[in-house]
Amino acid sequence: MKNYKLYITLALTLALGACNVKQSQAPLQEAKVASSIPSKNRAEKILDKIKNPTKDYVLAVAHRGDWRYAPENSLLSIQRCIDLGIDIVELDFRLTKDGHLVAMHDYTVDRTTTGKGKVSDMTLAEVKALRLKSNCGIRYSRQQVPTLEEVMELCKGKIMVNLDKTEGETVQEAFDILKKTGTVNQGIFKGDDSIEFMREKYGALMDSIIYFPKVWPRTKDKTAFIANYNREIAPIGYEMIFDEEDCFITDEIKRMNQQGITVQTCALWDDLVAGHNDERVLIDGPDAAWGWLIDNGTNALMTDRPEELIKYLEERGVRNL
């Protein structure tokens, strides 16, 4: 029996020792990286991966920040993504009555804050007086609704920002903020509209921004939609949405893979990824959902479970920046 105890003690010591070594090595590795490549910050390295997608790196995209950790679209939820090592944080922006872009998903502030009413009917001061609720609305937090400017200041040099809800509406306003904060290369715009519509509305601005067109099963004349975008602004990425495994869109993903265009998919809900979504990870394991998407051409994977996704991608060995 004495021997058993000895072995257990040994095993425990080894296990604990292994943990300690792992922890103490981390800062050393970081220091090494920092000293060997001083010229590029993390956001620039992420942008390189978007421009030149490779099999050994899958970009992790967090939907509305890490909203399980802190209120959706809050600075705290974004900071958490930075801490987790997320590459792109997807956030939503809407214009207040007095012309400020603030992070808010819905038209109204009802679901996510202590207040009521449309963002477009409120001034920035009025929005700032509100407090964000925890997810599920269990209770209010101390977090305020951040402006796009505050978001970009926080993200500067650290993480890319996918600007949702600006599509075809507030691209110019958002671009002005990116310029002001020196983060034009960190904002990814996206939208459903055709390049013809976007050109008509924004002209040469379309050549100055990073833009991911979104292709849906419902998108009209998909071949021309994509070809026209490629010809006009040669997007470095597309967001591809599909409700069936074998369809025009999944075929198109393969073509984009060959052309070195980043393919972003959204594992949020069933009908965005033909059932290979986040909840499926819980039921059938990550290979059945995230693994399938990566095997079928996804370069940037949007999730509502960023912490688990990062862990999975590390296990797959596709996180070497």
Binding site: E72, R111, N135, E279, L282, D304
Partner: peptide, 8 residues
């Protein structure tokens, strides 16, 4: 937590 009904 986003207010989206999840069939599972």
């Amino acid at each position: 937590g986003l207010g989206v009904p999840q069939p599972v």
